[in-house]
Nucleic acid binder design. Sequence first.
DNA 1: AAGACGTGGCA
DNA 2: TTGCCAAGTCT
Length: 390
Amino acid sequence: MNPTLAEARSRGKPSPPPPPPKAADLLSWYDRHARALPWRIGPAARRAGERADPYRIWLSEVMLQQTTVKAVAPYFLKFTTRWPTVGDLATAAETDVMAAWAGLGYYSRARNLHACARTVAEQHGGAFPPNAADLSTLPGIGAYTSAAIAAIAFDEPIAVVDGNVERVISRVFEVGEPLPAAKAGIRALLQPLVPQDRPGEFAEATMDLGATICTPRKPACILCPWSANCRAHLAGEEEAYPVKAAKKERPVRRGLAFVARRTDGALLLRRREGRGLLGGMTEVPGSDWTARSDGEAVQPPLGVDWQEVAGTVEHTFTHFHLILTVHRAEIDRDVPAPDGTWWSPVADTPDEALPSLMKKAIEAAYPGATRPRPSQSPLADRAATNRKAK
DNA sequence: AAGACGTGGCA
DNA sequence: TTGCCAAGTCT
């Protein structure tokens, strides 16, 4: 709390609201402090007239939905190396896309990514539509992502509102309405600030500001180009914003997982159905996950001697916490895979679309069974080895 | 409109 | 350790 302001308030003299922030102040900060990210072209390149590649902007924005920059970076490099253009991605097999996405989470994004690539390739001649309204009709592209692509790749002067920007704007204007209801109002407050000349960099700048300066806790207001225009800062109440609706508690569900390993190391796997939780991803056989431990009703996939693994595997999803009891069995070479399942050779494990939860379950049964194959990077392998030994 | 939908990092 | 959360979208 700023002591001077606290005194002013205690004397009952509310300070007049500061002037609204200026895009120019933020952009000059951005010129000096823009983050260098794999999908960006820097301020210097933009000044030289370079344009961001819509494919790379789209891919990065979809990956970044509810996901950190740190988690996204290696996936972005993997995807752009393997599929350099939207046309390449459109012709990829969906199972390959799902497998490449495995570990990033929110797997409907991967399904929609592939569907979107095919739509762009087949119905738009391989070029993304250059405006937010048309972009938002494509699968997996909503209000935020359409605006971000339009602003960053096509210079459309549109307000781009993500979680970072919600925080910045709610502090600057002391928005008292809780999120997510406040979203429309926040967009309306931001739109007049968007400059006609550098809308893409303004979008990147507001997100950078939220990510590096106007952070959820302990914001670095001393470094902020908008601090003199920020009502929450002038009131010493930065962390009171954004106001958020109360969240519900997470229920617990339980289930059983069966990890069958053949004597040659192959694992028994199957595909999850549909569009729901982990939809279309690969899993080990198991029970449903319910509030009660009704796993007893489920038949193991093979009539063999199953051994319960000590301890449990726990995994927290967005809306529930899962406790999995894992069973394992060693299976002879000549046992065929039951209907709807297949034996996955050890060497193929990295190519399977295994979500993190399934890797945890397999690791609990047979440590090392999902270890990635040796790569060209001895450093990475050594780091992984050290982590395991710990 | 509110709930479904993953994961790993960090205080 | 436990909770919170990070560049949302879909239904």
